[in-house]
Amino acid sequence: MAAATALRATGNVAARFEGRAATREPHWVKWSLIAMSLTFFTLFLLMPLIAVFVEALRKGWDTYLTALIEPDALSAIRLTLIAAVIAVPLNLSFGVSAAWAITKFNFRGKHVLTTLIDLPFSVSPVVAGLIYVLVFGAQGWFGPWLQEHDLKIIFAVPGIVLATMFVTVPFIARELIPLMQAQGKEEEEAAVVLGANGWQTFRHVTLPNIKWGLLYGVILCNARAMGEFGAVSVVSGHIRGLTNTLPLHVEILYNEYQFTAAFAVASVLALLALVTLCIKTWIEHQAARSKEES
């Protein structure tokens, strides 16, 4: 599904079409379409975003800050960071390695592999959590063995990390595969023929070509890793201060009718989303520039 989030880099198309009588709509059509689209945009995207911040600050800055620095919130922030710090680099290594194998070589079953990489995008987050319960839970495949060795995966931090990894597996691979496919392999082959080893070839030839796509995949992967709710909710057990991530902390506060605190914590996540979108727009800008230069 990341196809919908692929890195784009294009110039100003509007001027080209609006400048010609043959490809221009009448004024009333243009402005009614803009009005209709922007009303939809405001109702469904802009207002929910604004509502988060308005509700968060409803009782003033003091209440807002208190909700953020209480111990349970801090430990939720810590756990969210831990999950992302483990999941994102691992999925980065997977994404680079999968893209290298798929785009630089021909082998049987390539299409099947590409489809399988997409799989986590079409699996419901709740099902993603459930499968780890079936494997590592008390009744699961490894349940008795884990209990014998006093190890805990479900209702503990490892389960949260695993669930986070599952839902974010495709992000970086899906960004890199089309990009490296389009670039071909002639440059890398030239480097190898000239005596570069595999790592040097990747580092000095491939990486400069894919850096924007790579970064793009990483920030989208990170946003999802920090914001995942459904999958993590199934494996977490909701133990305050121990197995609560930020999104789960929002849910607990909300269900306890501590609305202002819930929105305060939610506003941190909303800020994270806005920062993600800013970096994303900046990367698109950079990618468009380097495309023009080449």
């Binding site: 945009f41 929910p48 509700e55 989208l220 920090m226 914001g227 979108l277």
Partner: peptide, 21 residues
């Protein structure tokens, strides 16, 4: 830029914001 908000905003945040609205 904001079109991608639903990709970037955690679903729980979207959920409580829509409920409040």
């Amino acid at each position: 830029a904001l079109i991608d908000l639903p990709f970037a905003l955690p679903t729980a945040v979207a959920g409580i914001a829509l409920t409040a609205l």
